[in-house]
Write a protein that binds this DNA or RNA. Structure first.
Lengths: 350, 350
DNA sequence: CTGAAAGCGCTTACAG
DNA sequence: CTGAAAGCGCTTACAG
């Protein structure tokens, strides 16, 4: 980092002279000024800004999300932008790509940018290192976290209520009479279980339903989802209802079930844990639990701005708050009582 | 003007302690911190910005899009963020909500924020007032526009190739033997026709196909789309193939066709002008023209950064460039030759 | 013209 | 937990 002193040493003059050259003081020999200004340019010395940008610039928030390409994230971001816009805050969006290193990098550049607060949805299992978290506090930047795993420190959180959702989903199917219930979604590889499968597991266990049909399928590979779907549908003792991690999975499972000659919901019931706009346009329309990701985003910013106002620009450390967004089940066409006799498609033998 | 020293004197502590209190240093007695922070508030002491030199702040771009909730926009934004991130630029995202006034407001706050450049996808028919455009130039802010209507001045543009897409869609259906082709999407209310219907109109006319089945249905009302779909399908001389503005429309039309007892594609062919990830998971999977909105976003930022580098601080006004992103047709299951005898569903009488 | 010196504001390593 | 002291960067009044 260049300074007046450094430039002065190299130029062989005093800091005072450099100062004067930089401020168009007439009492400087043109040659001296010339030499100094060249070095200033060469060493990229920047004059400090006259205005204190912290007060005058438009207040800005940071938002870290895995990817705008992910519709859940996009909806969270929508909520963030909506409230930020209403409150005249700008939002800088950075993508973590589910990678803790990206999140750290993003945090660092947002600290450099001196944003007022940061909304963080990391989406990775590893918490960010404590050093990054502490840097936020020492920079007076207010964080709000949108998942359970991105930060392990006690911090303000807004998240969807996975347990309420899981209970809602399992109980809905249970009430139809389903006693063997499958689940399709990414399961934890390591020690840190993500919230959703864990919540589903608890909800199944609470009803005494076996968890043996909780299946792992990563969202990136459609083939894998199709493969696992066939495993579930072709098992003679397999589930009569399947809960999917997202309605995207739900669409794929529907397609495969129909391909195998099964009717949805007469032969197999489907329930999705995410409600995108197209869920109601599928055939059959998929019954889904809406999570209101926009609310996660908007309430996060509201909480964040409340913290900023409480602090009034000054550091303080209130008791962290956790807000859980209540899910709602949208009944549509993909759930029914289980069939009297479970039908295993003949296509399974192929 | 307040300073740490002044606060320290009044509080009867050392400047060091004030410093620590302001930086959340845990090695401060809570009472001391409390007293210091009260005085800081009382005397309106403001912490200096960490980034002293104005120039060393992280370079920032603005991005104006109608809404992140719109999947097309989200994908454009994804491309924008990707390239910006790779080139170490921050992006401030603002939503226009298809409203020219919002776009203007957004432009103004981005000018105040002194962003280096702005990517604009307004999505409204009214161009922004000339004054707003001129302000950009006089502030040395480089704009890149992502549609045909947001700015009428000669300006750098990146957009999808509507005409190539329209020809691709119409010719694909034509080659199957379709001679009566419908279109479903928002049509222009006023004088400024949006690009897509106009392009479709030209492509239909180029093949000598009547444009009488180009139908208007706003995307917000599913009922309206369903209504118009029924009009098309129940007309005895109606189309044997329908092109939809988006694959979302496509899903709704499919659902309604099947409800009426028609088979897709045996009785009616469907082709969508947008390819979302779920198009391939529908039943039948919808044949769609992919527009690569991510490319629109990424190439816009690349062009923008090239302009910034060309300019290198000096004001200049190069010849505006226009980049058209070539579409690609994804053949799936929703298109087939027209039926020998066009079948009007009995359900139409209801 | 120029610089040594003193000063302000902020920050940090060290001593108590 | 706290502060005296030393340091950095910038700025200015003063001496030459």
């Amino acid at each position: 980092m260049s300074s007046i002193r450094k430039i002065a040493q190299i130029a062989g003059v005093s800091p005072t002279t450099v100062f004067r050259a930089l401020h168009n003081d007439p009492h400087v020999l043109p040659e001296t000024r010339q030499r100094v200004l060249e070095l200033v340019k060469l060493y990229e010395y920047k004059m400090p800004s006259a205005v204190q940008p912290h007060q005058s610039a438009i207040p800005t928030l940071g938002c870290i999300i895995p990817s705008v390409g992910n519709s859940y994230c996009a909806r969270v971001l929508q909520g963030v932008l909506e409230v930020a816009f209403a409150e005249s805050y700008h939002v800088i969006t950075l993508e973590s790509h589910f990678n803790v290193l990206h999140t750290c990098k993003a945090l660092q550049t947002l600290v450099e940018q001196r944003v007022q607060g940061i909304v963080i949805l990391g989406g990775h299992y590893e918490p960010i290192p404590r050093a990054s978290a502490l840097e936020l506090w020492s920079s007076n930047i207010v964080p709000v976290v949108l998942d359970a795993t991105t930060m392990d420190a006690s911090v303000d959180r807004v998240h969807i209520d996975e347990h309420a959702m899981a209970r809602m989903a399992v109980d809905y199917l249970w009430d139809f009479g389903h006693r063997v219930i499958g689940y399709l979604g990414p399961l934890p590889n390591g020690k840190n279980a993500p919230g959703r499968p864990r919540a589903i597991k608890h909800a199944l266990e609470a009803r005494g339903v076996s968890t043996k049909y909780m299946m792992n399928a990563m969202p990136s590979t459609v083939e894998e989802i199709v493969e696992v779907t066939r495993t579930l549908l072709c098992d003679p003792h397999g589930p009569t209802a399947i809960i999917t991690q997202t309605d995207g999975y739900g669409a794929i499972v529907t397609r495969e079930a129909v391909r195998l000659g099964l009717r949805v919901p007469e032969d197999i019931s489907l329930l999705a844990c995410l409600n995108s706009w197209f869920s109601s346009h599928l055939l059959p329309a998929i019954t889904a639990v809406e999570q209101y990701p926009e609310k996660v985003g908007s309430q996060a910013v509201e909480l964040l701005l409340r913290r900023l106002r409480e602090g009034d620009g000054l550091p303080h450390r209130p008791e962290p708050e956790t807000i859980a967004i209540a899910p709602v089940l949208y009944e549509r066409e993909s759930c029914a009582p289980p069939p009297a006799v479970r039908h295993v498609p003949t296509a399974c033998n192929v």
